[in-house]
Simulated scan of single mutants.
Amino acid sequence: MMTEPAHAAGDEACDFPNYRPYFPFLTLKCVGRPLYRTRDARNYACLLDLDPSVISWRCITYALADSHGPERYYVDFMVEKDGEHLLVEVWDRDPGNTEWISTLAEQFECRYQAVLMSEIRNQPRLQNARDLLRYAGYDAALGDRIRILAALDELGSLTLAECLSAVRDGRPMQTVAAMILTGHIEVELDEELLGPDTVVRRAGR
């Protein structure tokens, strides 16, 4: 758990002038206000929302102060995982020596993690996460859930196009995306961009 100096600023504190919301605006696991320093930070947060090892994350919109000196430092996120907390900073280029900020993170009982966006910017998972999260917060109708899950139980798998065709009570893409985000069904996010032939399975099968 982060120590008191990190909590003192509070969720509403923001001492960096360029923090702002970026599309997609809805989140799944964010605690507090979703405000970001950069578009890259918002994109990485999409990956946090779809990472099953992440319990929650929050935007850090204020500088962290070193209790042993005057230094102040900005990171992007505090991420809670099972058994550890991370202070995550999103970089567009190689951050170089991060020993100092790693030591600072230890004062907040966290591990520092530098994320190099150039290594993940073009990966299918990032675009798939962005596409799905635009539908976060949508509730799939019960009848549509039952139809899709029953078909998966019978056939084992469907294509994404077939799932869309099975929707009767709600909006097709919103319904299927909501079922993916809530863990009712699953698709492969890492191999290629989602498309009509993407294989859909019941989660856990």
Rank of each mutant, 00 (worst) to 15 (best):
S118G: 11
R93P: 15
Y73P: 01
G69W: 14
L50M: 12
L133A: 12
C46W: 01
M117R: 01
E89C: 14
A63S: 12
P52W: 03
L126E: 04
D94R: 15
E71L: 10
V54A: 06
F77H: 03
P124W: 00
L48C: 06
R130F: 13
D139L: 11
N122Q: 14
L64K: 00
A140G: 06
Y62S: 00
E106V: 13
T103M: 15
G143R: 11
E89N: 15
V79Q: 04
I101D: 04
M78F: 07
N128P: 04
E119C: 15
S67K: 00
E84F: 03
D49M: 03
E71R: 11
L142P: 12
Q113D: 04
D139G: 06
E71P: 06
K81Q: 14
D49S: 05
P124G: 03
W57Q: 03
Q113L: 08
D139A: 13
N128G: 04
T61Q: 15
R134W: 13
A63L: 09
A140P: 04
L87N: 01
R125Q: 11
P95F: 13
L132N: 08
N97L: 11
H68G: 05
E99M: 09
E89P: 05
A141E: 14
V54N: 03
I55A: 02
G143H: 09
E80M: 12
